[in-house]
């Protein structure tokens, strides 16, 4: 009898947390109770960068993480962190459910992880307290908080904004006082962080649609029999549709709450200039043949 310890930085009840719990239920059924899953939510075991290391050591068996912390470790994950690489959420689903997703999952293995499934991370858009962003010119010189990642910093600079890395916990008061003008995130985080209370303009440009990943420690994986390994893979796969349903419901609830609070949501924007500005970012970060090939395959996917 094995209990797989799983880490997640999101709180209990969050779609990714519930999806892994669901996976555990399926696994328990398919193995007659031999394998179960215990989710440590709310970053109890540490932030993503730390839990990724712990997963490598086999202290944590399963880990639901964003792609960002893997970018400098597993090169292939960079491709999904590129701005405007997907045409939309459905396109992202088609790519990640197909052979490209399969290849990226396999790329984790040499680094000590077994890639099991991709979850949704929503699409990230800009919000600010100053004015509705309707064109790329509106972003010019605006101080926008981004995550500490080279791609995101370069993306903001390419758009003419002043990329300002800052700890997440300081963003709310920094927007309120004007240290920064805005930030960027998906509907649920824009709502749950309370940032919509201080940044009243939300521009749905969907510059980043980055899936998240569920990985297993190679150490823990090798302890399982081939049948059990297959059972884990099956259960992880089966948790994906559950996760997507939960995610959609969550996104909708957040959107309703934000709109009800009187936030101005800008949907009418011409994305072409934004996408055109990304050439320099692609040039700088898509350097290897492996990445170039992945990008063109994603572009070729309907």
């Amino acid at each position: 009898e094995v209990t797989l310890k799983s880490s997640d930085t999101h709180p209990d009840g969050y779609p990714t947390v519930e999806a892994v719990k669901h996976m555990g239920k399926l696994l328990q059924e398919s193995t007659d109770g031999r394998i179960c899953v215990e989710v440590f939510h709310s970053a109890q075991l540490g932030q993503e960068k730390d839990t990724i290391e712990q997963t490598k050591f086999g202290v944590i068996d399963l880990n639901r993480v964003s792609m960002g912390p893997f970018n400098n470790l597993v090169e292939e994950t960079k491709v999904v962190s590129l701005p405007y690489v997907f045409k939309g959420v459905d396109h992202m689903h088609r790519v990640m459910d197909g052979p490209i997703g399969e290849d990226i999952l396999k790329a984790f293995e040499p680094h000590g992880y077994v890639g099991l499934a991709f979850y949704d991370g929503g699409s990230r858009s800009f919000y600010n307290r100053v004015k509705p962003i309707k064109s790329i010119e509106d972003l010019d010189g605006m101080k926008v908080r981004v995550m500490q990642s080279d791609i995101f910093v370069d993306m903001m600079s390419a758009l003419g904004a002043n990329a300002t890395p800052m700890p997440y916990g300081e963003v709310y008061s920094s927007i309120q006082t004007g240290v920064i003008d805005g930030a960027e995130n998906n509907w649920p985080s824009y709502e749950s962080s309370g940032h919509y209370e201080v940044a009243g303009y939300y521009t749905l440009d969907e510059h980043l649609i980055v899936p998240e990943v569920l990985v297993m420690s190679k150490v823990s994986w090798d302890k399982l029999s081939p049948e059990d390994q297959e059972a884990v893979r099956q259960a992880a796969r089966a948790s994906v549709p559950v996760m997507r349903d939960l995610w959609q419901a969550r996104e909708k609830a957040s959107e309703e709450k934000v709109r009800a609070a009187g936030v101005e949501v800008i949907t009418e924007i011409d994305k072409e200039p934004f996408m055109a500005a990304m050439d320099s970012v692609y040039e700088k970060h898509v350097t290897s043949d492996k990445l170039k090939d992945l990008v063109s395959r994603i572009r070729a996917t309907d």
């Binding site: 002043n162 300002t164 240290v179």
Partner: peptide, 14 residues
């Protein structure tokens, strides 16, 4: 840099 030059340093935090 951020307040006067409006050009944040991305490396100062790490």
């Amino acid at each position: 840099m951020r307040y006067v030059m409006n050009d944040s340093l991305v490396w100062s935090e790490p």
